[in-house]
């Protein structure tokens, strides 16, 4: 039954059941993939009160409030079923047990009436709790984390591009003693994730005196075998004639690298740049190990710390999560095709 779903082509021009199954699958995919993120985004605009409601409302909503003459605080509006069966909008002054004291906002002078709480129903309106976003910026060091992440991502990516392209250039353009050894070394490091050398890298970083500095996050991963490989593969496709022509043109080796090879390798550099930005922006385990002072936290570490501390303050946590994923989402919207083809061609991420 599933079989014809698995073949590549259908008869042209006809919409048969396999197409319907396919589109149903894709629609489910859209819901499964986008749904959770959409839910996060919607939730991040809810007030703390709306967040703990069960069942949750779909859109961010808040209770309507009204300022009533004679009352200092704005009062919450309710729709109240009167004893005679009619329905009236009233403001709640306070709630006492199962009774609520309410006042008619149209006639503030009238004496408050007691209403059983099951006879009233909150009046709600769509409201975005922007304070979820603005307050953490002031109250917590969210801005600092953001800046730290930005610094790490930009500087690390620049260093990665520079030193990896230099190595790739050496390994693709020249023949020299030890080239095979260098290539083997690169392949070797490909298999060693930082996961398994966590503690000793920590020692090295401390010995250099980079403890609790952003450089401790930037430097260890700057030389990536993945990057060297990707760039070398691309540089190998550049015509040798160009290099030789440049040499005949009196270009120094550095100028050949900087003025001929680098511009021509721009597509591969762009792919590596995007990978590096992704790795660095999202990096978690190593910063978690090496950054212990909150001034140097990156976004990911800050967010993780918050989810421990702010267990009860989901409204801040959700808003900050949205802000963490926003740059990535924007990059994705603009560079989607570029990223996916880059990954499909290299098989790396």
């Amino acid at each position: 039954m599933k079989a014809s779903l698995l073949t590549r082509r259908r008869a042209p021009g006809r919409l048969d059941w396999t197409d319907i199954v396919s589109y149903a699958y894709l629609a489910l995919g859209v819901v499964m993939m986008f749904g959770p993120v959409l839910w996060l985004a919607l939730s991040s605009f809810k007030t703390p009160a709306a967040l703990i409601e069960f069942p949750p409302s779909f859109l961010p909503a808040a209770q309507r409030v009204v300022t009533v003459e004679g009352y200092a605080q704005p009062l919450e509006l309710y729709r109240v079923r009167q004893p005679d069966g009619s329905v009236k909008e009233m403001a709640q002054i306070r709630r006492v047990g199962l009774q609520a004291q309410m006042v008619d906002p149209a006639a503030p002078a009238a004496a408050p009436v007691r209403v059983p709480i099951e006879a009233r129903e909150p009046l709600r309106e769509i409201a975005f709790a922007w304070s979820n976003y603005t307050e953490p910026l002031k109250a917590f060091s969210f801005g600092r984390f953001f800046a730290n992440s930005l610094f790490v991502t930009v500087v690390a990516t620049l260093i990665t591009l520079l030193i990896n392209s230099m190595a790739a250039y050496a390994l693709s353009i020249y023949e020299f003693r030890g080239k095979t050894a260098a290539l083997t070394m690169v392949i070797g490091t490909l298999m060693i994730p930082i996961t398994i050398i966590l503690a000793p890298v920590y020692l090295v970083v401390s010995a250099i005196g980079l403890n609790n500095s952003l450089w401790a996050v930037i430097l260890p991963g700057a030389a990536t075998p993945t990057g060297v490989f990707l760039l070398r593969q691309y540089m190998l496709t550049l015509p040798r004639d160009l290099i030789e022509a440049a040499r005949m043109d009196h270009a120094s080796e550095w100028r050949i690298y900087a003025r001929i090879v680098m511009p021509l390798a721009a597509p591969a550099l762009a792919v590596l740049a995007i990978f590096s930005i992704m790795w660095r922006w999202n990096e978690f385990l190593w910063p978690l190990a090496v950054l212990t002072r909150s001034e140097v936290y990156t976004l990911q570490i800050g967010l993780n710390a918050f989810q421990g501390e702010l267990q009860t303050q989901w409204h801040y946590l959700l808003a900050m999560t949205v802000m963490t994923l926003l740059p990535v989402a924007l990059v994705f919207v603009f560079l989607q095709r570029f990223i996916t083809t880059g990954i499909a061609n290299t098989g790396m991420k």
Partner: peptide
């Protein structure tokens, strides 16, 4: 793109979502 985009999200964000 729909199926791909979670790949770009950080593990922390994914977990919190």
């Amino acid at each position: 793109a729909v199926f791909f985009f979670p790949v770009l999200l950080s593990p922390v964000v994914v977990a919190l979502i």
